[in-house]
Design a protein around this nucleic acid. Structure first.
Length: 469
RNA sequence: GGCGCGUUGGCCGAGUAGUUAGGCACAGCUCUGCAAAAGCUGCAACACCGGUGCGAUUCCGGUACGCGCCUCCA
């Protein structure tokens, strides 16, 4: 399995470090609002990555976190539930958005059952513990508003800060220096733990005899959770390119300061989805949610296809035209899947290479740095040969192929349902009408079927073939 | 200011040192009672300027434009 590793900036072969189990940690959502489709595309990628590892024959352990305590969740929970206790308000808010998030994930074809979801607030204990150990070993210091990680101490211990990107003094924007309003020694130092401000939810914490009651910093959450759930080092850490710095760099620093040489053997980052050539972001107000897409009559899986049509390391463009193109493509795939019901129940494939070659090509495309555009091209190619499928396959041979496509790409094609006996009857009557050259009757029947969302392909060997519109 | 990435036909989007994925859209033809489907054909691209090659869209250098990161961010 080849993957692009941000640590080395190269596509390299990856094999699991331990027990043939691929351990993946994906930075998940901050659950303070609806996820927008740019956020969601990162999880479509993570889902596809896990599927690809499974196809490569590895067992996977895939962990994704919910960031359910941070500045935004706290602010938002106070706005929405001003009369509740801070902790209770936080819980209400994050419970709500976790539920919405899971629903979006499911609608997008992401296999949520294959992922272990963890909440930051369920791991506060290990966050405190990690903070304490970093402090005791001299990698952290106390400030008025919290506990900070010391980049200087980290570097003096012989470690590199800047493993994922080059960091130089010139590389730091003036804006950052000007905005540096916190009480820290070095501009890159970051909070491991923040002391409670009034009205904020907080957890008891005593460090070096001082009351540090408060909450964890963002970066420590992922270091602690990934260690709790996967141990370190694990195999693959995923996230959007925006997380490379500082988030993942800081996670590495926290996780490697004490003992282990690396946090994860591979960091994989997906590029952003652009709207009108710009990054989709809440702050830029140029974002859409999955519900926006659904309200416009699009299928969530069409959006999945739009994401998969571009390589994860290139910026994809979102537009309604592109989404419509993806939806059309999905319709074709579904019509292809509907062929299942036209096939005989049993019988060996008389054209065994047709589906096997496609399957193997799709597997190799995915093993090659998750080359989903190539995999989809191959699927489209196979779809274009539906007549051959119709004449050579049976349910016994075609169903597993659809299941394979679903396993590999999450398109839910094998969920195709048969049409009703009444609808078959309509198709049958139309064929008879056509044979009798009763064109009015046959057109009537065709319209009836159309109203029920069924299209008919004439003149195929063995009788008319239906598909969903 | 620093670092990184990109620029492919009407649109999206792969790929390659010589034979050029795929999707969407469009035009014509065949087939068809009509339509759909299918088949055939057409359409049309590798930002610009140099360099190295017999040969570059593909490698190297530069220019222009765009994007991202350096701050919360998928």
């Amino acid at each position: 399995m080849k993957l692009h590793n941000t640590l080395t900036r190269n596509v390299e072969n990856i094999t699991p470090l331990r027990d043939n189990i691929a351990r993946i940690y994906s930075c998940g959502p901050t659950v303070y609002d609806h996820a927008h489709i740019g956020n969601l595309s990162a999880y479509i990628f993570a889902d596809t990555l896990r599927r690809s590892l499974q196809l490569a024959g590895y067992t996977t352990k895939h962990v994704m976190n919910y960031t359910d305590v941070d500045d935004k969740t706290i602010r938002r929970s106070h706005e929405q539930y001003p009369h509740d206790e801070p902790m209770q308000a936080l819980r209400k808010l994050t419970d709500h958005y976790i539920q919405l998030f899971n629903n979006d994930m499911d609608r997008l074809g992401n296999d949520i059952a294959a992922v272990t979801f963890v909440r930051a607030t369920d791991h506060i204990g290990s966050m405190k513990e990690l903070t304490r150990r970093l402090y005791e070993r001299g990698f952290a210091y106390l400030a008025d508003d919290g506990v900070y990680f010391s980049i200087e101490a980290y570097q003096k211990s012989g470690k590199t800060y800047g493993q994922l990107l080059e960091l130089t003094p010139q590389n730091t924007s003036e804006a950052r220096i000007k905005n540096d309003e916190y009480d820290k020694d070095n501009i890159h130092d970051f909070a491991l733990w923040k002391k409670q401000k009034s009205g904020e939810p907080a957890w008891d914490f005593e460090l070096d005899g001082q009351d540090m009651t408060g909450r964890p910093g963002w970066h420590i959450e992922c270091s602690a959770m990934s260690r709790d759930e996967l141990d370190q080092p694990f195999d693959i850490h995923t996230g959007g390119v925006d997380l490379i710095f500082p988030h993942h760099e800081n996670e590495i620093a926290q996780s490697t300061a004490l003992t282990i040489p690396t946090m994860a053997q591979s960091f994989v980052h997906n590029e952003h989805i652009l709207v009108d050539g710009k990054k989709m972001a809440k702050s830029a107000q140029n974002f859409y949610t999955l519900q926006d897409i659904i309200d416009k009559g699009f299928d969530p899986i069409a959006f999945r296809l739009l994401v998969l049509q571009a390589h994860y390391r290139s910026q994809a463009h979102f537009s309604w035209d592109n989404l419509e193109a993806a939806q059309n493509r999905l319709q074709k795939y579904r019509a292809f899947a509907d062929l299942l019901w036209e096939l005989p129940d049993t019988g060996k494939s008389s054209d065994p290479n047709l589906l096997n070659d496609a399957k193997n090509d799709i597997i190799s495309a995915l093993q090659n740095d998750i080359d989903t555009p190539h995999a989809l091209a191959r699927l489209s190619d196979t779809e274009g040969q539906w007549l051959r499928v119709l004449s050579s396959e049976s349910k016994e041979t075609f169903k597993p192929f659809l299941e394979f496509i679903d396993q590999a790409l999450g398109l839910n094609l094998s969920h195709t349902k048969d049409i009703t006996d009444t609808q078959y009857e309509l198709i049958h009557r139309r064929e008879q009408a056509r044979r009798a050259k009763d064109w009015k009757q046959s057109d009537d029947l065709r319209n009836q079927l159309k109203e029920q969302g069924i299209g008919v392909r004439d003149d195929t060997p063995g009788g008319d073939v239906w598909y969903r519109l």
